[in-house]
């Protein structure tokens, strides 16, 4: 318990210090990192708790982003309304997707989310009247309230950080709630959870909708960060990127996805500066880390910090039959 609080305090300190010490680019990198940390958290909520690997979490971010762009730019609705409607619509699409996927298992789920994601991606390309097609919708701007321009990198940082931290804390609680435990139970022993009197399908569905809503928040920030909404964030490449980050960091732990995103973005930025073969270098690093740390960076760090005397008591410890 104490250790967990300490880590959280240290992280908060870094988040506060970051905009005070770092240059504009590093702050804008942090903004992107947090947006993708939310997307990876949304992915990990399903992958880590339910064993559901989704390829459509970035699609929810995309739906949310498009809603913001369309309502904000085309219809000129005020910012709070735009964001509310975007999150509502994203949640609604998560409800619809959830109804379609709730009965499926591992590979079936992966394929269904892949298909749904690709469908929405294709739609974003082809429904030109609404989405602007390949060109997308430009000119998405945060409002200026009381002389504070929310488009300014550091102001935007404060907003993104606050919301991201709040969501991570909420998911932290969720992981420690009976509901979080139940999700884990469903992943490991679905039949038993049912026999114990738990509404398995409803729990799965709720987790899916919740994860969709988190991705929706990521989408709102994504579109304001970019200023333009185009089909590119809905592509398979982004979905796989999020999956990679979550696996690299460790999708079973709370901070794993954030860690994975931070490492991946840092890696991309650093390597891209020195060589054109950065994709190869990054691929190699990923390959090695997944071979050497199949349970992710967060797990390796956790094991290091773990005191020997303390029994395995967290919900992130190993499943039977897997190599540590």
């Amino acid at each position: 318990m104490k250790r967990e609080y300490l880590i959280i305090l240290a992280l908060l300190a870094v988040l506060v210090a970051w905009p005070l010490l770092m240059g504009n680019y590093a702050v804008s990198q942090a903004n992107r990192a947090m947006i993708y940390a939310l997307a990876a958290l949304s992915f990990s909520l399903l992958a880590g708790r339910l064993g559901w690997f989704s390829l459509c979490q970035t699609t929810f971010a995309g739906i949310s982003g498009y809603t913001v762009a369309i309502l904000g730019v085309r219809f000129g609705l005020p910012f709070p309304l735009v964001v509310t409607l975007a999150l509502l619509l994203t949640t609604l699409s998560a409800v619809i997707f959830g109804l379609l996927t709730v009965r499926s298992r591992k590979v079936g789920f992966l394929m269904l989310t892949l298909a749904l994601g690709q469908m929405v991606w294709a739609l974003s390309f082809q429904w030109v009247d609404v989405t602007g097609g390949y060109n997308g919708i430009a000119g998405v701007r945060m409002p200026v309230y009381g002389g504070i321009d929310f488009n300014a990198t550091r102001v935007f940082y404060v907003l993104v950080t606050t919301v991201t931290v709040a969501i991570f804390l909420a998911v932290w609680r969720l992981y420690r709630s009976p509901f979080g435990l139940l999700l884990l139970g469903i992943q490991e022993n679905e039949q038993r959870m049912r026999a114990l009197g738990h509404p398995v399908a409803l729990a799965r569905f709720s987790a899916f909708v919740l994860a969709g809503a988190i991705a929706g928040v990521a989408g709102v920030f994504l579109v304001y960060d970019m200023g333009i909404m185009s089909p590119s964030p809905l592509g398979l490449g982004h979905a796989v990127w999020v999956l990679t980050a979550a696996v690299l960091g460790g999708y079973r732990s709370l901070l794993g996805p954030a860690l994975g995103v931070a490492v991946l973005i840092t890696l991309e930025t650093l390597v891209a500066q020195y060589t054109d073969r950065h994709m190869m270098v990054i691929g190699l690093v990923l390959l090695l880390s997944i071979l050497l740390m199949p349970r992710g960076l967060a797990d390796v760090l956790e094991q290091r910090f773990k005191r020997k005397s303390k029994p395995q008591a967290s919900a992130t410890t190993t499943t039977q039959g897997e190599e540590p």
């Binding site: 609680r173 969720l174 420690r176 709630s177 009976p178 509901f179 979080g180 435990l181 139940l182 139970g185 959870m193 114990l196 009197g197 738990h198 509404p199 409803l202 729990a203 709720s206």
Partner: peptide, 15 residues
Amino acid sequence: LARGDGRLPSLWQPW
């Protein structure tokens, strides 16, 4: 996780 009551357990209380 014992004693399921057919309803969704709390998302907020500690387990």
